[in-house]
């Protein structure tokens, strides 16, 4: 038995070309026929190789026009927490947020459990839809402790950085996050906002955010398009 089949090996080779920039993001991949010729394999083998890359989200197929290299994913760094805006702009990508709702509420049972706070705690709940490069990326739901940041207003978070507002108005310096990532199926509203077919998987990125004085400031609960992000950590540069 072969250790690895041709399609797996070819997929890896093309992946290397994408990573090294030989095939730039959003560019059109040579046709299946051309590639099959180059690698000296049957069209069927080549098709399976392309399928592997499609499954990983490395390439996108467009009807009648072939395959394109997927846009580069946004890198969330496992070693460095930062505002979403900073993360995306650091990669040279544009981003903005649309404010969906802003309200003040008493903590729910579920949040009280997650945040370890009593039932009479009040929170600002801020729902925003984040775009990267003009396309929906994430539904961001932030919950901020009213007591610590009483002066936050709608204007502060409408296409502006929540963390800058916290710093400027309340001297709160965001310092660290305790996070978790899991997979969920997007519900109807989430699918619609993120422009996904119904009940496709989405990434849930949740976290408790603390400031430099080790106070719990925020609980965030974001639903993110799985094809647009990855988490990275580098010990070796």
């Amino acid at each position: 038995m072969k250790v690895l089949t041709q399609d797996v090996i070819i997929a890896k080779e093309i992946e290397c070309r994408i990573e090294s920039g030989i095939y730039p993001e959003r560019s059109r991949l040579p046709s299946e026929r051309t590639l099959a010729g180059e690698f000296g394999v049957q069209r069927g083998t080549m098709r399976r190789a392309l399928r592997i890359l499609e499954d990983k989200g490395a390439i996108l197929s467009r009807q009648r026009s072939g395959h394109y290299i997927a846009p580069r994913r946004i890198d969330f760094n496992l070693d460095a927490y930062n505002s979403r805006k900073a993360v995306i702009e650091h990669m040279g990508r544009s981003t903005y947020v649309k404010l969906l709702t802003f309200d003040r509420m008493f903590i729910t049972d579920k949040l009280s459990h997650k945040m370890g706070l009593p039932g009479d705690t009040q929170l600002f709940r801020i729902m925003r839809l984040r775009y990267a490069e003009g396309a929906p990326l994430a539904l961001e739901r932030a919950h901020i402790l009213c007591d610590l940041a009483p002066d936050i207003t709608e204007e502060d978070v409408h296409n502006r950085s929540l963390y800058s507002a916290l710093r400027q108005k309340h001297g709160i310096h965001i310092d660290r996050a305790v996070s978790r990532v899991s997979a969920v199926h997007a519900n109807g509203l989430e699918s619609e906002l993120l422009n996904l077919p119904v009940s496709r998987p989405a990434m849930r990125y949740e976290g408790l955010v603390y400031d430099s004085r080790d106070r719990l400031i925020e609980y965030f609960d974001d639903i993110i398009r799985i094809d647009r992000v990855q988490f990275i950590r580098k010990d070796i540069l």
Binding site: G57, I226, V229, Q230, F231, I232
Partner: peptide
């Protein structure tokens, strides 16, 4: 003893 790593969520492939 040292790692570079990355992860993402994808939709399961056939294989």
């Amino acid at each position: 003893v040292a790692f570079n790593q990355r992860f993402k969520i994808i939709e399961a492939s056939e294989r």
